[in-house]
Nucleic acid binder design. Structure first.
Lengths: 341, 341
DNA sequence: TGGTGCCGCTAAACCGTTTTACTAAACGGG
DNA sequence: CCCGTTTAGTAAAACGGTTTAGCGGCACCA
């Protein structure tokens, strides 16, 4: 028993396919009698228009794609993503769009893009200079870039004041008296490209704070890790073996959480033996013990703005960019270094 | 400049559309010369096959739908969902499927279903007796039910031993000496239907423990809340105003988290003044202070199994169901009631 | 030399809708 | 009563691919 098509309904009701289509989409074109008869027969047969066939002609899928630079399950290891999706979805739901999670197919974002049947994309963490995005642009599909760095471009984007937030956070540690600071940076998904985008911005912010405080910035104290708790833990442990630090400046809360693990493993107490600061202010940040000092950014809001911008693009053509504010959130995980106490 | 189609490529290469299609899909049918020429011209023109048109004939979308009973952003307020998605995605990524988040359109799950262009569905928390699922079945689309209750049915499903887990957890509290236990149950998305599925199973488990211990089960001490932190907090506060309790037995960690909030608001210490137990063992459970006593279930694994089952259905037809184990995880949030100390 | 089989490619049908262009009948106005 | 307009519906094209059936030419074999 094959699927019921519009032709089946038409045949059974002794009308044309057009009439059936009208019954659903522009009922005014039909006399109430025939309309009801068609609708009734359609219901009887259990007919539902095929969304794919419908998309063929309407050019609308009713869903938007969320483009991730990593496998979904890898990305989700960082609570940041669920949170930004929460924001995106709140807008999508209101506008009756579904969200398709699109991650690289066999390492190729481009390949994944080609397969996604969506009306537009929200991309997280990728710059338009990167191949995949230029590919979308060629397909003339609306895009909104989130966390793509603040390069001025014609593509709509939503960013936060990464550099300022990072600078404030680093300044906070320096003002407490820390001099031996371990920086844990986010490793980009594409290691071959020079540092850019969010990691670049935040690193620049850190560096600025050091320069403004007249303290030498040491590249050899910057370590890179994928944004997962485990990677954060490992990189901090590795760094601790090679050097001595009084503070960890992590570029993401999830990395800071790894630093907590590392501290516990090493028997170091926070903040007496080691101060830890993060970035994001995820919900877990306040639940940690001690609660994490971090840079708060409006993650849900970021997602919501991006979705709004995209949906507006879908209707009125591209346009608009936004930069949201960050705020340093001092909690219990940072304190003066032991030497200064 | 309209989108480049297969006809454009064909015309430019002086071959038929078929040849172009072959160049991409069954290169063996073409001589190496023509194949390369076509591919080269296609690349030059920036041609990419339209995924929608392709689906028309292949009957494959390459994505699977995750059917949620609530709006996505509401569901995501419970970390359980991101976690189960993490599991689903790990399998999807491996099999090159994308995941479409499908939530009700204007309150209608059915409506949302009709719009989703997917190869199959994973449904969370809904039973096949419910309309939407029967609708999918009529469309002859593979489905896997997660957390649908253990009714025997021909639909593949993945469940956990909810009843046993809940019973163990309740027993734990009773053995500690608690008699005034506040039960916080998950409120189903559809309030008009009688209690069933996961909430029903867990509640039965609680009740069993009471009966086995010879302690009267009191319906008036069962309160329902949507699975969000805020709802958990509110319902506990409301219950506390009306009665006196030494323990909270929450059906989900996220509700237990709300109970923590309520306890803090009331100035009650955990576990001295009030014991709290949850269900799920989300990653945050161990981070709370004190760490939460809860029933551990393999959430990621649940998602992964469901995805595996679904993808197998897609290939070989439906079949298979699984029940995963739970395990009571006693931590610091439960202790003897003050009166028994 | 004639039949057979394979190679490389094409024309046309098909997937299930929507949309466009058109028609026959009913209707209304002068 | 005739002509123009609306009403209610239809036939066919279009969307952009894949798939099926088939065709001409060449190679091989008897």
């Amino acid at each position: 028993m094959a699927r019921v098509t519009i032709s089946d309904v038409a045949r059974r009701a002794n009308v044309s396919k057009t009439a059936v289509s009208f019954a659903f989409n522009s009922p005014g074109q039909l006399s109430p009698d025939t309309r009801d008869r068609i609708l009734h027969i359609a219901g009887e047969l259990g007919y539902r228009p095929d969304p794919v066939a419908r998309t063929m002609t309407t050019k609308r899928t009713g869903s938007i794609g969320l483009l991730l630079p990593q496998a979904v399950h890898t990305a989700f290891a960082n609570p940041f993503y669920p949170l930004v999706i929460e924001g995106i979805s709140s807008v999508c739901d209101a506008h009756e769009y579904s969200l398709l999670l699109v991650s690289p197919v066999r390492g190729s974002v481009e390949e994944a893009l080609g397969r996604a049947a969506v009306d537009g994309f929200i991309s997280i963490g990728m710059d338009e200079a990167e191949l995949p995005i230029s590919h979308i642009l060629r397909r003339e599909m609306p895009v909104v870039l989130v966390d793509a760095g603040d390069r001025e471009g014609e593509t709509p984007r939503v960013n936060i004041s990464d550099r300022v937030g990072a600078r404030e956070c680093a300044r906070h540690l320096l003002e407490l008296g820390h001099r031996d600071v371990l920086v844990v940076a986010i490793q980009s998904y594409d290691e071959t490209r020079p540092l850019q985008g969010v990691p670049f911005e935040r690193l620049s912010g850190y560096q600025q704070a050091f320069e403004q405080a007249g303290i030498p910035w040491r590249e050899d104290r910057v370590f890179f890790a994928r944004p997962t708790r485990e990677a954060g833990r490992e990189v901090v442990l590795a760094a601790m073996r090679k050097g001595s630090y009084t503070a960890v400046l992590a570029m993401a809360d999830i990395l800071a959480l790894g630093a907590y693990d590392a501290a516990q493993h090493l028997g170091m107490r926070i903040p007496c033996d080691i101060s830890i600061a993060g970035f994001d202010d995820l919900p877990i940040a306040g639940l940690l013990h001690p609660p994490l000092t971090t840079v708060a950014q409006p993650v849900r809001e970021k997602g919501a703005r991006a979705a709004t911008l995209l949906i507006r693009s879908l209707q009125d053509g591209p346009g608009g960019s936004e930069v949201l504010e960050t705020q340093l959130c001092v909690r219990g995980s940072t304190g003066p270094p032991r030497s200064a106490m």
